[in-house]
């Protein structure tokens, strides 16, 4: 399957298109942007990442959305479901490009994405792994009602485990 299109007050959550590659590549080329999400990577690896965001849906029935501003159509970031089979829990993650930060887009998008993940995937333990130094992302987790549960080693560094509230009325 491909990503279902979702709407929030100000955003469209949609699947990735090849036209998104330039913006995502620019984002990942910058050290400050990529510090908390696996580090900088060259264009061909960003292309791989974007392909993976799409392929996740096809292999698993859940995956990642691109966030698009309804007004103006800007591609402003992404959010979605991540399930590396060897990770302890399934994750909801998000990133907003710097020029679009500070508007509450991450929490707005992740709230709707989380509901859809529960709707499609049924009840599950859902967490967000957040670098302890990534204060903006931690605030998003708080806004979403997640609770700091633990700090673990992940991808060679510390990661806070933020546990999300369980779905209300999620189908089994």
């Amino acid at each position: 399957m491909s990503a279902p299109v979702l709407e929030t007050e100000r955003l469209l959550l949609r699947g990735f298109k090849r036209e998104d590659l330039a913006a995502l590549t620019a984002f990942y080329a910058n050290e400050d942007n990529a510090r908390y999400i696996g580090g900088t990577r060259p264009a061909y690896r960003v292309y791989g990442l974007m392909s993976a965001f799409v392929g996740h849906w096809e292999l698993y029935g859940l995956g990642w959305w691109a966030m698009e501003e309804k007004a103006g159509g800007n591609f402003v970031g992404y959010c979605g479901f991540n399930n590396p089979p060897d990770w302890p829990d399934r994750e909801i993650g998000w990133a907003v490009f710097p020029e679009f930060q500070g508007h509450g887009y991450a929490s707005e998008a992740a709230l709707t994405a989380r509901a859809e993940i529960y709707r499609l995937g049924g009840p599950m333990k859902l967490v967000s792994y957040i670098d302890p130094e990534n204060a903006p992302s931690r605030r998003v987790a708080e806004k979403l009602g997640a609770v700091l549960e633990d700090t673990i080693e992940l991808r060679g560094g510390p990661a806070q485990v933020w546990r999300h509230p369980e779905a209300e009325g999620a189908r089994a």
């Binding site: 298109k17 990442l49 392909s51 392929g55 096809e58 590396p84 089979p85 060897d86």
Partner: peptide, 23 residues
């Protein structure tokens, strides 16, 4: 490639077909 990196490559091998028509 291990863990997350292997998972991403695996997903990418599938996803690039729908994004650009080959892979």
């Amino acid at each position: 490639e291990l863990g997350m990196s292997a998972w991403r490559s695996f997903c990418a091998a599938v996803g690039s077909w729908s994004m650009i028509g080959h892979g």
